[in-house]
């Protein structure tokens, strides 16, 4: 079990190698397969998360949620996607047609690209990038532009307001997001995700960086535009924000991309703070990738829990909270972490 995927990759590699392919081509193909597997995982998990969200919300609201399509309603999302695919993709008359069409296509790119560096288990990382965390931050910032683009291209006033909110919100919360991670980076001295996980072998960083984790959590909720920071979509205010004019599969893409982003930030939280695929209490007989997924889904449950409990904050409160609370706090966190690390080293405790 533990080495299921790793040995699968090795097997494919040796198979290809014996097939007479050059080493370079083999590398290329294996990499391709790895990325393909991740793609499949993301898509499937986005589908599953829609189901999970509906179930979680239903359970929190004394309902039972989807239960008609498939056993326990498991095929509900599939049915929904089927329905959405079959629906017309309406392009408003005055929309900027090219950008309008491009929006749903591009929205999946940043999360997909980031997943390439995510360590899913022991040795299970597609590209072990030297600047992994930084790469995540850099690419995560791109989705802002894409959502903005989609909203702007719709030529709808609600979309426009939503677009402006996207820009304001995601740019503001990128600051605390980045700064909250800095604490971890100070502790590990590396940007490589695998190294960060290895650094947590003794103690997870959630215990060393509780404030950092909290800030990361809040900023991540804001980055993924989920309640209580779902101003971008804010359905009671601006209908659906940038996605108001999207219908059919276009809407479905945005919908799924939101979940892809949720998975992404959860994966990052797991990697940075929850020890990644490391098993707690020495329960190593469970494979590392299962541990990883468990932690990721725990994080995702947390996100859903927030969403179905909290009302939405107002846009100025959002900005104020981001700039006046989270940013100073995260800077303080960096400061404290630095001092702590210095003391730790110089006192030799």
């Amino acid at each position: 079990m533990e080495n299921l995927f790793v040995s699968m990759a090795a097997g494919i590699r040796s198979l290809l190698g014996s097939g007479g392919l050059s080493e370079w081509a083999t590398d290329f193909l294996v990499m391709f397969l790895k990325l393909g597997a991740i793609l499949v995982y993301i898509l499937v998990s986005a589908l599953w998360l829609v189901y999970m969200e509906r179930k979680v919300s239903a359970y929190m609201q004394c309902r039972i949620g989807p239960n008609r399509v498939g056993p326990m309603g498991l095929l509900q999302t599939t049915a929904d996607i089927g329905k959405l695919i079959s629906k017309e993709f309406i392009i408003p008359k005055d929309a900027d047609k090219k950008l309008f069409l491009l929006g749903p296509i591009l929205i999946f790119m940043p999360p997909l690209a980031v997943f390439a560096v995510a360590p899913f288990g022991k040795g299970m990382v597609a590209i072990d990038m030297n600047i992994g965390v930084y790469y995540f931050l850099a690419l995560a910032s791109l989705s802002t532009v894409i959502i903005w683009m989609a909203g702007w291209a719709s030529n709808n006033k609600y979309s426009l307001i939503g677009s402006m909110r996207v820009v304001a919100q995601m740019v503001s919360y990128e600051m605390p997001l980045i700064l909250s991670i800095v604490g971890v980076i100070i502790l590990t001295g590396t940007l490589n995700m695998s190294d960060i996980i290895h650094a947590q072998e003794n103690v997870w960083f959630i215990f060393l960086q509780p404030l950092g984790f909290l800030i990361y959590l809040i900023a991540a909720v804001a980055e993924t535009n989920r309640a209580p920071f779902d101003l971008v979509e804010g359905e009671s205010e601006i209908i659906c924000g940038p996605f108001t004019e999207y219908s059919g599969m276009g809407f479905a893409m945005f919908f799924l991309a939101e979940y892809a982003n949720v998975v992404l930030v959860s994966v990052m939280a797991t990697t940075l703070f929850l020890g990644g695929w490391l098993a707690p209490f020495g329960l190593t007989f469970i494979p590392s990738w299962i541990w990883f997924l468990l932690k990721v889904y725990l994080m995702i449950f947390l996100f859903m829990w927030f969403r179905w409990t909290y009302p939405r904050v107002r846009v100025d409160q959002l900005m104020e909270f981001g700039w006046k609370v989270l940013v100073p706090l995260s800077i303080a966190n960096i400061f404290v972490t630095g001092i702590g690390k210095y003391l730790y080293h110089s006192l030799g405790w």
């Binding site: 979680v56 239903a58 359970y59 929190m60 609201q61 004394c62 309902r63 039972i64 239960n67 829990w305 927030f306 179905w308 409990t309 909290y310």
Partner: peptide
């Protein structure tokens, strides 16, 4: 208050549901 809200939803999560099929 935020934590209390979370507590309420979590409690509800495990309580019986009111849905009528």
């Amino acid at each position: 208050g935020l934590l209390k809200g979370l507590g309420i939803t979590l409690k509800r999560f495990f309580k019986p549901k009111v849905t009528v099929q």
